[in-house]
């Protein structure tokens, strides 16, 4: 996530330089070639050297941007030795989550469904169409591995604040690394058209401290 922000800031810096240069050129042209100032226009309409320059320079800039972009693209796929694996499974039309690292016996996993809270049940301060009954709780400042898949049709698990968007494909387990740098609640929505209630299966990630996460897990284990 930090890499995405840094690359954005770096590119915006050079973008501003380019915008200032282009605006300066346009202003200068408008000023110097105004019909009152320059009544007889120049007949020359072709210049090979300058045309090569203004074609090659932008393509060089694009190539220079591509280098850090690709480095970032591949580093985003890298799963750094994670401490927690969470499976997010898309259904028509809700998400379900599985935490299987802590089960004591064979067939026990922490699994729960995460449904949107309908308008009528919203409490004051809750976000309409975004709040869910069971949030996905994760520890902050911990390397997480998310396994995204679907049980019926294509879905997409996306939380913009975490820089995460991953297609959920039936029969395929997509893995994405997530590292949340602070505690908080992060909202997202299904981002692949998946049917009638596609707009009503939001995602809520609640990042808590490690101690709170442990106590949440132990409470969930007792419920099994």
């Amino acid at each position: 996530m930090q890499g995405i922000i840094d690359l954005h800031h770096d590119i915006v810096f050079f973008m501003i330089l380019i915008i200032v240069f282009v605006l300066w050129m346009i202003t200068r042209t408008l000023y110097h070639f105004h019909y009152k100032k320059n009544p007889i226009p120049e007949k020359i309409i072709h210049g090979t050297a300058i045309e090569i320059a203004w074609t090659v320079t932008p393509s060089l800039i694009l190539v220079l941007i591509a280098v850090p972009s690709f480095a970032l693209l591949y580093s985003l796929d890298e799963v750094v030795d994670p401490a927690v694996t969470i499976k997010a499974i898309g259904h028509q039309w809700y998400w379900s989550y599985e935490y299987s690292d802590y089960s004591q016996s064979d067939d026990q996993s922490i699994t729960f469904d995460s449904y949107m809270i309908p308008d009528d049940d919203l409490e004051l301060g809750q976000l309409r169409l975004l709040e869910v009954d069971n949030r996905m709780v994760v520890p902050a400042n911990t390397h997480l591995r998310l396994i995204i898949t679907a049980a019926d049709v294509l879905h997409s698990w996306a939380v913009p604040s975490l820089g995460a968007k991953c297609d959920a494909v039936p029969g395929r387990l997509n893995q994405i690394p997530v590292f949340i740098k602070r505690e908080g609640v992060f909202y997202g929505q299904c981002s692949e058209l998946c049917g009638a209630n596609h707009a009503f299966m939001p995602i809520v990630v609640e990042a808590v401290s490690l101690e709170d996460y442990i106590s949440w897990v132990s409470t969930k284990l007792e419920e099994i």
């Binding site: 994670p82 401490a83 927690v84 694996t85 690292d101 802590y102 004591q104 520890p139 911990t142 591995r145 490690l210 442990i214 897990v217 132990s218 284990l221 007792e222």
Partner: peptide, 9 residues
């Protein structure tokens, strides 16, 4: 409670 250990694959 069995102590919860943060470890995964």
């Amino acid at each position: 409670r069995v102590p919860i250990v943060l470890s995964t694959a």
